[in-house]
């Protein structure tokens, strides 16, 4: 008697809970990338005295601390002057800003990569987790492998992007890694911050 009443209730409860979980699953917030300190001035450690390398495009980037091993392709800017990023359907690629210097030349080389894509976390998802002292290895088209050491990792609101710190002149060989971060604004379909890693060549 009692099981006759309980069983339909259990079945109904299972059904309602299952439907609820499916609804939540379809609309859930995706995993959010780590968030470094916001908008404080970046510092640069004194660079070791290394002879600059000649120009050669980077072809691979490796960041052991956050498990990044990625191919690098050249990128420029679109007609409006906005930095290009590798296509969203190839989220495992990093892009090298080809109008700037190459990694190892005197000046700051710039690499950009997606933090995520519709398929989930992308190549630079964990960039914000990097810490000073950790290493970034770049393999160049001339087969040279050069290592950069992280000086600092910062988040900047996109309307206060530090162009001169990223693209500006430098006396030593530096590297800048850029991705998105901070809050995701569903209204605009964009993250509000850029995460920037500042690094200096050490070997």
């Amino acid at each position: 008697m009692s099981s006759r009443r309980t069983l339909p209730a259990v079945v109904a409860l299972l059904g309602v809970t299952g439907l609820g979980l499916i609804t939540v699953g379809l609309t859930a917030d995706p995993a959010r990338p780590p968030r470094p300190p916001v908008d404080a001035p970046a510092r640069t450690h004194p660079a070791p005295d290394l002879a600059p390398l000649p120009r050669a495009a980077p072809v691979r980037v490796r960041i052991p601390a956050i498990g990044v091993r990625a191919e690098v392709v050249p990128v420029g800017a679109d007609a409006a002057g906005v930095l290009e990023v590798p296509p969203l359907d190839r989220p495992t690629l990093a892009g090298w800003y080809r109008h700037g210097v190459s990694p190892g030349e005197t000046g700051n080389a710039v690499l950009v990569g997606h933090v995520d894509s519709p398929a989930g976390p992308a190549v630079f998802f964990d960039l914000g987790r990097l810490r000073a002292g950790q290493e970034i290895q770049i393999t160049r088209a001339d087969a040279a492998v050069t290592t950069f050491t992280v000086d600092d990792v910062r988040a900047y609101p996109k309307d206060r992007f530090p162009s001169s710190l990223v693209y500006g002149p430098a006396d030593a060989a530096g590297l800048r890694l850029i991705t998105c971060g901070g809050r995701f604004d569903a209204g605009t379909g964009n993250y509000v911050d850029n995460i920037i890693v500042f690094a200096t060549r050490t070997t």
């Binding site: 699953g25 894509s117 519709p118 850029n194």
Partner: peptide, 29 residues
């Protein structure tokens, strides 16, 4: 280049673990 880098899409807006659990419960029901 002008301004910031557009380097994210907001990620995957589906939670596959929750979806699977929901599907199992609904199937049992």
């Amino acid at each position: 280049p002008i301004g910031a880098a557009p380097a994210g899409s907001g990620g995957d807006s589906r939670d596959n673990g929750t979806l699977a659990a929901g599907g199992t419960l609904l199937g049992t029901a």
